[in-house]
Write a protein that binds this DNA or RNA. Structure first.
Lengths: 339, 339
DNA sequence: GTGAAAGCGCTAACAG
DNA sequence: CTGTTAGCGCTTTCAC
């Protein structure tokens, strides 16, 4: 009536229990599990059989403590007011989760805003993660700077001019260049750009691509119909007004959020797409998915970015040498909005 | 040149270092930090001063191991194909993160699908969390059943008939009843319901509320214009066709995803909202935000649900007695689509 | 091949 | 009020 069949009670079975049960030492059990060190095939088999049978699961926390690792990676999501619902980040997160689970890591999430990284600091201070995935890149990148200072491994979903930062991104400059070129070739003369926060590297890259298209095709670009930092409804509305007043025949939106706002504006003013103005966008999320007419957009697979980021980061943690830049493909989905 | 100013090197400072430095025992340091046990104000001050000065951060993992806790909570997100981009879950997650950070917990994320909970099992097996937040409720709820079996604390964002499950939800039945009643009062006679997966408790509750409105107002309900389990584009399209053919003058959509599809369909058929048919929906997310005309919808603050869920769960973990059901308010935003 | 012992950084009796 | 002693569950030298 004392410790017979302890299994039934709360406490989880430990490596020590197995050792006792099998008349071996904890060391041996540990070796049988990890595969490290020399061990006879026979004992290994016996241990594994026992483990199987009793459904033993090693305590990752204890293992981590012994190795000074956590087997967790952090994913940092932006919590700025207008970004919390952007599906891109959610998909990135799920991608990292998928990669992590496959490598026996878990994902802990926290948030930062453009100018407040206290929650990131907390995560690092508490030593809860072995590395971090940053899901967006800023020009003045507080999180990246901080992580660099601490020396903890991290990767960036996005691009940075800092060559020491491991980056996972698609080529936004090339994408926007291609998109702009398509509009130019399809007969548009006056193509407007409506872009978001220029403190986000991605928006700068797209602007860069837009300009490149004009240079490449030796066409004149009109700065009067380029609108940057248009990250709220009012600014977008003003931009759309200006764009229409100046007789643009094409609009490139730097993201799906902006695009959906633009489309609403155009609708309200009875400006037909694509007849009166063609529209193209970046990142074809659910925000755009149902629009009529369908919107031409650069397709970025955010989940793939997350998966790649997760794998690279865990590789880094495990001491692998990781290339500084991983490019993930994008695709252009040509739809009626530019036809 | 040996261990002078060890601070600079990699290793983090530990409780032992402080003890040695201050000529005290580890226990005393521990007590000074936790506030547990008796300790003189003076030593406490000294320790805290040292901690402050040297920016010591306790190792949460080690603390956890000693106490058999992780100071992590799990958040389980649905990974079913058509749900990954639903902003509701993202907002819930951020809510839990916020609550957790405030209580010195972290959030680890994983996913399940309707019929696959291996990743949840993995998380529990690995003993990485002290409790779990489920972000949606199924009729045949694998995750809830599994967690109940393991005995680990968990809360459900959503509703369940299982009275032992701690639930955080808004009253969807009342909400849908109210919404339906508003349409009925505004002169609609034939109000259609277009609802999603009936294995989700929330969709059943809304259906229930819809019926209740008719009963309450002693009006006849027409089952021919009630469409359930409409969780993809094709099924929604068919439903919209049928709804129009049967001369409905109002449509209630059980979520924003369905609603955005419905609106697209109506637009394509040149059916004017609200002139020819009124439309109302649940959960006013970015998917609906920009629509013209604006859509009447039940506003559910997903982040608040997350915050409440996080707090309740951590309360539970800490041994508090938690009420079985927490209702979070909803609001009805009356917009042009039903005027 | 296997085991003993120390230790990861902290907490928790139990003494004094 | 403070210190001593064991752990938490696992890994990792170092012997044998």
């Amino acid at each position: 009536m004392k410790d017979i069949n302890k299994q039934t009670t709360s406490r989880n079975i430990t490596i020590g229990d197995i050792a006792k049960e099998l008349g071996l030492s904890k060391t041996t059990i540990s070796r049988a599990i990890s595969g490290k060190g020399r061990i006879s095939a026979e004992t290994k088999r016996k241990v594994q059989e026992y483990i199987q049978l009793h459904n033993y699961k090693p305590n990752v926390i204890a293992k981590g403590l012994a190795q000074s690792r956590t087997y967790n990676v952090g994913v940092i999501l932006p919590a700025d007011a207008n970004l919390v619902e952007v599906p891109f980040f959610q998909s990135c997160l799920l991608g990292v989760c998928e990669a992590a689970a496959g490598l026996d890591y878990d994902v802990v999430v926290t948030t930062v805003t453009e100018d407040d990284i206290t929650l990131l600091k907390r995560l690092i201070d508490n030593q809860k993660v072995d590395g971090v995935v940053l899901t967006r890149s800023l020009v003045n990148d507080l999180p990246a700077a901080y992580l660099k200072e601490t020396g903890i491994p991290f990767v960036l979903i996005g691009s940075s001019e800092d060559e020491e930062v491991i980056q996972i991104d698609s080529n936004h400059t090339a994408g926007c260049c291609e998109l702009t070129a398509i509009l130019l070739k399809s007969g548009c003369n006056r193509i407007a750009l409506l872009a978001g926060n220029q403190n986000f590297v991605v928006n700068r890259s797209r602007y860069e691509g837009y300009r490149k298209a004009f240079r490449d095709m030796e066409q004149d670009m009109d700065n009067e119909i380029v609108f940057l930092d248009r990250n709220n409804n009012v600014l977008i509305q003003q931009a759309v007004n200006a764009i229409l007043a100046k007789g643009a025949d094409g609009i490139i939106c730097s993201d799906d959020f902006i695009c959906s706002k633009v489309l609403t504006q155009l609708e309200e003013r009875n400006v037909a797409v694509p007849d009166m103005v063609k529209v193209a966008s970046f990142y074809n999320s659910s925000l755009l998915e149902n629009h009529n007419p369908p919107i031409t957009a650069i397709q970025i697979n955010a989940k793939d970015l997350g998966i790649t980021a997760g794998k690279k980061l865990i590789g880094m943690i495990s001491g692998e040498k990781i290339e500084q830049k991983s490019l993930v493909d994008y695709e252009i989905a040509l739809k009626k909005s530019t036809s």
